[in-house]
Design a protein around this nucleic acid. Structure first.
Lengths: 164, 164
DNA sequence: TATTGTTATACTCTATAACTATA
DNA sequence: TATAGTTATAGAGTATAACAATA
């Protein structure tokens, strides 16, 4: 019968706190490009594997196809993405980056590296490396897909915000 | 000029991914008590320092007083919280837990410990301890308030969801 | 006049499902 | 009939500010 540990400082709660903090810092950074984190993730996913259909991309990211439409509309209006009809099956729209889309994706990559430096500013090189290894281990154990943010997923009906 | 690191696996992105995952797991756990993470955090804050006004609690958590009203209404309807008017200044409502509120808060604490075990299931005792120290260091450097989830804060106009 | 708590309004986001065009 | 993509509708969540009671 040990005394209860002082609640709010366990690993799970710290992860939730820091995750929110990290997401907010990134959102602020890419707001300077007039983009949201969702746009950034979609651009990155298209860059990683161009030519896929919206359906395939929506499934990888775990979001509703109808939601993806609006994002792609915005990115197309800005000249970052183009839809190319597949002549063999005219229902499919293959997604590709334009030259401007590749430029903005590079800038997002720079901001991602800046973001990483900001979030690890309190650590030395060895600590940073240790943290990265431990987080990677936990992420694998939780079954997270590398490079895909779970925030796209719907997850059912409940919300996931404060305190946890 | 080194090659760009393979983007999505830096510490900042991992924190954002795992933070979302951790928050979702916790939300699922306390949904079994018919509560949301926000309710849990408010109950915990009242338990930690009973008798404060709604205004004071809202400021600590960083949420709008008008939002807190609805949460406290729900917790009062469930019989977990009571508002006590201060006779010296009848504008103030001191917040207290009822006996049922203390019981449910204890159960939340048990779920929080279960949550922590779930999120650290892939690590041995030493790794878990190292991770906790590193996360605490980062959280302090980012200026996070211990035991207070930043999700309550408004933060301005932008959203903070996927990718980052 | 200022402050606590409350209510009301408008706005944003999202989920759902209906629709079209192609197959 | 089934599928890719799109549009429309309704619901939930939130921010803002107006309001009543008390000081």
């Amino acid at each position: 019968m040990s005394a209860n540990p002082p609640d709010g400082d366990n690993v799970a709660f710290l992860l939730s706190q820091l995750g929110h903090c990290s997401a907010t810092v990134f959102a602020d950074l890419i707001a300077s490009l007039d983009l949201t984190p969702a746009h950034a993730g979609i651009l990155r996913a298209i860059a990683a594997e161009p030519g896929r259909s919206q359906q395939a991309l929506a499934e990888q990211l775990g979001l509703q196809p109808s939601r993806l439409v609006a994002f792609v509309d915005e990115l197309e209006d800005r000249g970052y993405v183009e839809r190319r009809r597949n002549p063999d099956d005219r229902r499919l729209h293959a997604l590709h980056l334009t030259p401007a889309g590749r430029r903005i994706t590079n800038r997002i990559g720079e901001l991602a590296r800046r973001h990483d430096r900001m979030m690890t500013a309190g650590l030395d090189a060895r600590e940073r490396q240790t943290l990265r290894e431990l987080l990677t281990k936990v992420a694998e154990h939780q079954g997270l897909t590398p490079s895909v943010h779970p925030g796209y997923r719907t997850l059912g009906r409940r919300r996931a915000k404060p305190a946890g």
